[in-house]
Each structure stands twice: as structure tokens, then as C-alpha cells.
Design a protein around this nucleic acid. Structure first.
Length: 501
RNA sequence: GGUCCGUUCGUCUAGGGGUUAGGACACGUCCCUUUCACGGAUGAAACACGGGUUCGAUUCCCGUACGGACUACCA
């Protein structure tokens, strides 16, 4: 028995991995790395009806994109293979049978319809139906029925489920790494189904069995599992196993209003809730992904890490290795965190500025000469949130203005400005070395000689050349446009602008 | 309805029995700049409420309110 830390991320392949799931994976990864442990990926595909083709692949690709791929498990192999629960079906059956033999679990023959009927009946009386120590004696199961009848039902291949025999009295308590002591009475836990009638285990059984067999030391998962944690403890006790340490993570909430973050929020808010783009194989509907929106993996990771955890210092920018260093379960918050797209964008801007300009130029401005691409990157980098904006910004920059910003013309276009522009139209072609500082010098001299202040002309010059009243450094812009282009644009503008009387 | 969990600026959060309750995003103002952006400075902005305990509570305890999760042969 090794004492080293082993954690797992155990998603169901029922669709694209939700961003909250990504954060769970991240925290598991960080903790594993921090402790020198192992990060395992297990696929929990025990619900055959909800299986979505491509989902597993999507999970793997998403983790790979973020650089938090598993050390062991699906996509990485390992000593406990297979890591897909559907491929471990027989195993669970054996453990369920063991509990039957030890009388810690029992067969139940009630049909879904019968149970539904019970629920509606209880509901009409204003209470909730629970399959538990109180009700099971009156239901169709191996605890209530005579042994001979049970055997007969079994022999006749009557569909059945296996349920855990939860004790009527008792208190379950465990110490959660995030929430400290949590206690609950067994009376509020019902006799959960362990094995479904299709022969597949439920989450609860498969999860506990696998976590034990795979020697998982810490279960780090979303808060939605907190209510079933006591049941899992019960299961560990039934098997006589030591339960792992639990850490239940706070939920990721909607940016506005209440409730947990959902796919709908993404559609409404125009931001992604999935790491990568996802096309629904059924409907063909496409959901946005962080990757395709232009979020860098480092930024996504950093943003996600801070949703529910913080290092306790004022540092906010953390590389993955720095996160590993700083991470601890104790500093995870209890309360849910609202997803704030502004913060995500800010992180992206920070990491974007740290990117190698050569790489950005190559990737987004590859159609231009390298030197020119680089010049554009430095011109636009601190004005953008997503790298692909580089392409559109540069395309617009290269395009001749098709119209001129009206408001600026209204305010700044007057006889003096016109005089200035005409002088520049004469002076600019004579600039010997077409370089930003030389251009600036020439403009300066030209206007000064005429007694015109720079401020009176510069913005209108910008509009004349680019069409816009605001934009990047004009002198460098002019250098990049080239002398001929600048003269051409200036001449065109002089013609297009209204006449001053 | 029941069980469990939670609650510090609009948002993410630090803090913790005595603090000018700190930082970041977003927002406002100013500076830088020919403009915008970046950057810098600065401002507005919070301890859900009520009871205890205490010399003192935002911090500890108990209630209330509000929010959330769960309550399937889904995970």
C-alpha cells in the first residue's frame, strides 16, 4: 500500500464538459501535482441512455488543450484499467452480491410505475415518499417477501434492483476539507439503488467501488454531491473500507440572478460555458468554446482557479506551475461563485500581452511579411482581448476608409484644419525617409511654419487617413500605410470632406 | 415540503473580537498621449437581519431572512 495521493476526475460522457467540470478537473490536477500524487481520469458511463458519442473524446481534448491531462486512466492507461465503468460492469455486480450475502443490501422488485404511484400518493398527503426502513417492509423486496417467493421471482427472471439497507437510526459524520464537519441522520437517507435492473451499477456503487479499488485518497468534486456523501460513507462502512478524504467544491453560479451556471446563460450572455466548441450530434446546434472565442489556456486556467479559491496573497496572475505551488484544499471557499466574463477577459488580456509577438504574427497575420506582421502586433496588442481581433483590426487598417466619422468632421473640420491638411498634402510627399519620427518631424515643421497648432489638425488627419476619430499611434500608422497610400488617402479625403466657406 | 450547504463592495475575494474592513474586475475622475487603448494616480462602493456572549462583534453562538444543492433504476 502506497501512501501517495491519488485523485480522480470522473465525468459522465453525456455531453460537452461544463466549465464547472473543468474547474473540478483543475483542482484535482493541482492537488495531485502539489502532493506529488497521481491524477486519474475515469469515465462514468453507467447510464446507457444518456451516452453521447464524442463526449469522451471532447473531455480528453479539453484537458489536453488546458495542459491538465491525466496521468492515469482513460487516455493514459494504468494499473487499474479499464477506466470506463461500462467496461467494469461485472466487478460491481460481484460487490453488490457481496452486500446481499452479508444482508447489507436486498433485492427489490418494485417497478418504476409502482414507485411513481407511491410518490404521487405520498405527495397528495403532503409528504415525500422514501424507500427506507419504514416503508420497505410494505414493498416488494427480499426483506418483506417470504424467501420462497423471492426465490421464485428470481428464478422467473423478474427484473430487480439491488438496494442498500440503510439503518433506521444513526448519525453519519465526516470531515470535509472545504466544509469541515458535516453530519446527517441516516433516517434522511433512503435505500438507494445500487444495481439497476439493466445490470449496470448506479453512480453511488460504481463510484465507491472504483474509488476504493483505484486507491483514491481524496475525492474532490462539486457541491452537488454533498447530499450523497453520507450515503457513500455508509457504503464504505458496509464494505469495511476506509473512506477517502472528501472535498466538496462550491458551485459556479449564473452571472446575473440566481442559480447555477447553465448552457442557457451562455446563449443569453454571449460567453462560453464550455472549454471548447461543441456540436450536438443530435441537433447540430453549436455551443461556443473558450478556445474558439480566443481565450488562451493559461488565462482560462488562471480565471477558473480563482473562482472558488485564492492564494491569500495579492498576486492574481499565476502560471500553471505557480498554481500548483500555491494550491491547497484549505483555501477553497465555501460559497458559490458567480461567473464574471469581464474578469475572464481581463485575464486573457494579461496573458495575451505575454505571448511571443512572433507567434501571434505568424498565427494571425501569417499572410503578411514577417516584419510587417510584427509591427502590427505591437501596434494593436494592447487594444485587444482576443488574438483573432488582430486579423480583423489589421484587415480594417489596410482597407481604405469608406466613410468618415461624422462627429469629428462636425467638430474639427474648419478652415484652419483644411488649410493644415492642404499644407500636409504638399509637405508629406517630400518626406525623404518615411519613418514615424521623420514624419512627425515633417508635420511639426510644416504646421508650425504656418502657425497652426498640431491639435487643430491631428484628429482630422486621422479621420482623413483611417476614417476613424480614434485609433493607434498615427505616425506609426502612417509609416505602415506607406507614403503613397497616405498621400492618396489624404487627397481623397480632401475631396470627400465638405467645403468650408 | 424534507435534508444538507452557504451569505464581506455590482462581481471575484482578503481579513478577523478593538482595522481608516485590504486587493482585483467593472465603473467615475485626473495624469500620460495628437485621439483611443495601455500604463499610473485617485474616487464611489460591502460585513443580510435580529438576538445573545463580551468592556467591545462584521468576526464566536442561536435564530430569522434570503440564496443554493439534493430529494430518479441521472450522474
Amino acid at each position: 500500500m502506497s501512501s501517495s495521493v491519488r485523485v480522480r476526475f470522473a465525468p459522465s460522457p453525456t455531453g460537452p464538459l461544463h466549465i464547472g467540470g473543468v474547474r473540478t478537473a483543475l483542482y484535482n490536477y493541482l492537488f495531485a501535482r502539489k502532493m506529488g500524487g497521481t491524477f486519474i481520469l475515469r469515465i462514468e458511463d453507467t447510464d446507457q441512455t444518456r451516452f453521447v458519442p464524442g463526449a469522451e473524446q471532447y473531455i480528453l481534448e479539453s484537458l489536453a488543450w488546458l495542459g491538465i491531462s491525466p496521468d492515469e486512466g482513460v487516455g493514459a492507461d494504468g494499473p487499474h484499467a479499464p477506466y470506463r465503468q461500462s467496461e467494469r460492469k461485472e466487478l460491481y455486480k460481484a460487490y453488490a452480491d457481496q452486500l446481499i450475502r452479508e444482508e447489507k443490501a436486498y433485492y427489490a422488485f418494485d417497478t418504476s410505475e409502482e414507485l411513481d404511484a407511491m410518490r404521487t400518493m405520498f405527495e397528495s398527503k403532503g409528504s415525500a415518499f422514501q424507500y427506507n426502513a419504514l416503508t420497505r417492509v410494505k414493498l416488494r423486496n427480499s426483506l418483506a417477501l417470504p424467501a420462497a417467493e423471492v426465490q421464485a421471482l428470481l428464478d422467473a427472471n423478474t427484473p430487480y434492483v439491488i438496494r442498500l439497507k440503510v439503518p433506521a437510526k444513526g448519525e453519519i459524520r465526516f470531515q470535509d476539507s472545504v466544509r469541515d464537519w458535516v453530519h446527517v441522520h441516516t433516517s434522511s437517507i433512503d435505500d438507494k439503488v445500487l444495481m439497476k435492473s439493466d445490470g449496470m451499477p448506479t453512480y453511488h456503487l460504481a463510484n465507491v467501488v472504483d474509488d476504493h479499488i483505484m486507491e483514491i485518497t481524496h475525492v474532490i468534486r462539486g457541491e452537488e454531491w454533498l447530499p450523497s456523501a453520507p450515503l457513500h460513507i455508509l457504503l464504505y462502512q458496509a464494505f469495511g473500507w476506509t473512506a477517502p478524504q472528501f472535498a466538496h467544491l462550491p458551485l459556479l453560479l449564473k452571472p446575473e440572478g440566481n442559480g447555477k451556471l447553465s448552457k442557457r446563460d451562455a446563449d443569453l450572455g454571449g460567453f462560453p460555458v464550455f472549454p471548447m466548441e461543441w456540436t450536438d450530434p443530435q441537433t447540430g446546434a453549436v455551443s461556443k468554446g473558450f478556445k474558439q472565442e480566443g481565450y488562451l489556456p493559461e488565462a482560462t486556467l488562471n480565471f477558473l482557479a480563482f473562482l472558488g479559491w485564492n492564494p491569500g496573497t495579492e498576486q492574481e496572475l499565476f502560471s500553471l506551475t505557480e498554481l500548483v505551488d500555491a494550491f491547497s484544499l484549505e483555501r477553497i471557499n465555501k460559497a458559490g461563485a458567480k461567473f464574471d466574463v469581464n474578469k475572464a477577459k481581463w485575464f486573457n488580456e494579461q496573458y495575451l500581452k505575454q505571448q511571443a509577438p512572433e507567434l501571434l504574427a505568424k498565427e494571425y497575420l501569417g499572410h503578411l511579411p514577417a516584419e510587417q506582421g510584427l509591427a502590427f502586433v505591437s501596434l494593436f496588442l494592447d487594444r485587444i482581448t482576443f488574438p483573432q481581433e488582430l486579423s480583423t483590426l489589421v484587415a480594417a487598417f489596410i482597407e481604405k476608409p469608406s466613410n468618415y466619422e461624422e462627429a469629428v468632421i462636425q467638430n474639427k473640420w474648419n478652415a484652419e484644419a483644411e488649410k493644415g491638411l492642404r499644407l500636409l498634402a504638399d509637405a508629406l510627399p517630400k518626406v525623404a525617409v518615411w519613418q514615424a519620427d521623420e514624419i512627425k518631424h515633417a508635420i511639426h515643421e510644416c504646421l508650425e511654419a504656418a502657425g497652426i497648432k498640431m491639435g487643430k489638425v491631428m484628429q482630422i488627419l486621422r479621420v482623413a487617413l483611417s476614417g476613424n476619430g480614434a485609433g493607434p499611434d498615427l505616425m506609426i500608422s502612417m509609416q505602415l500605410w506607406g507614403k503613397d497610400q497616405v498621400v492618396e488617402r489624404l487627397t481623397a479625403a480632401l475631396q470627400a470632406f465638405p467645403k468650408n466657406s
